[in-house]
Design a binder for these strands. Sequence first.
RNA 1: GCGGGUGUAGCUCAAGGGUAGAGCACUGGACUGUGGCUCCAGGGGUUGGGGGUUCGAAACCCCUCACUCGCCCCA
Length: 425
Amino acid sequence: MSAPKIQAIRGVKDILPSDIASWHILETTARNLSETFGYAEIKIPIFEATELFARSLGAATDVVEKEMYTFEDRDGKLITLRPEGTASVIRAYIEHHLWTESPLVKLYYVGPMFRHERPQAGRFRQFHQIGVEALGSASPWLDVEQLVLLNRLFLALEIAPTTLLLNSLGCPLCRPAYRDALKAFLSQRAENLCEACRRRIDANPLRVLDCKREECRALTRDAPVITGFLGSECVEHFNAVRAGLDDVGVSYVVEPRLVRGLDYYTKTAFEFTAEGLGAQNTIAAGGRYDGLVEALGGPPTPGVGFALGIERVVTLFKKGAPTSPSPDVFIATVGESAKRRVMGTLTALRDAGIKVETDYDQGSLKSQMRRADKLGARHTVILGDDELAKGLAVVRDMATKSQTDVALDGLVAHLITLLAPARRA
RNA sequence: GCGGGUGUAGCUCAAGGGUAGAGCACUGGACUGUGGCUCCAGGGGUUGGGGGUUCGAAACCCCUCACUCGCCCCA
């Protein structure tokens, strides 16, 4: 009776049937849209060699330093539960020489990710992402295309309002100069920055711009901005993305402080945010990563991609979707011989594609009727000893309350014709 | 890893030292084999766990666990 209860691991959630409809709507909408935009699904492994993530995300990244679920395999090799999907997609791209199939490869994936963080609103240790990646083209049109895809997804789901934040992080050619300038600026004001930011000056100066403390924000208000340091190629790219968005009519806010947490991003960086999610208000984020494929051992290949947090988007669904499917027919039974007959009848109806339920424990007829009503059954078949003796069953229309006697032999056929009009609709 | 908040019935929550309650849900009855509405009744709790204070603790104190929100960081 009182065996120790086992709970789900911290930060890991069950997605119960009452929530599943929103998940389905989001997933199917995203899949359809992705395919309309020319992206094909790829299924990537849940775990990979630890090395893959260390190299792709950046060894000094928080994710790699302290958030990965890493364990030793039986042969001693280090394995990590994937904290994100891009690394795997690129690994697969390289491993299967996907560039030989087409100069441009457009992929999407759906599935769980794992990060050992402290859970809070909108943040879990196992969470789910839908990710999209385009490999093989440096065209800003792809950046635009993916932003349009996200924009259309949120429109279709009626998630409003969302804000698109856009920035350019430059490339290995122009970023160092900016980094130095920013460092110099911050160092002069170090004593007035918060403790965390003082540490960041050397470790990751861009992050200081992201600090939420008012004092830090005030101090960095006129800090040098990346856009002032971009080389001509990066400027052109950034302008092209903005022009593309303008052409399509997708609005955005240029946010020079927008910084991505993972090292591999270049040029375009973006983030969609929404209200009503608590502190974690980013619902999708991504950008360009032109050096990543090469860094992982592939041919020099530009790429763009984003990931969307399913849990976060799902919580924005205000519309209550129907939870469990209502049966077409409910079978109520009275008496022993009727009870013995149920399984056969259930099976015959199900073979005909009719959704049937029954009360397996055969409560009182009243409670069975109540259950039929609660489940939303359109018809209830009453199988009682009295009817069986006469070779009949009673079919009750739950809405009109009208009942008809039906011969047992013809019961399935009768129900099929009864339900036919609705199934066509 | 660091802070704040909360743990009472399946769910949402009352009771702020003196007999653990309500609503919803569930089961049964009124209606002996017929759903929704109404009314009545019933089942269900070591008040997260452990220790302490007290004649007496759900309540006060300590520890612990869980959940939750936030920081760091991220989807």
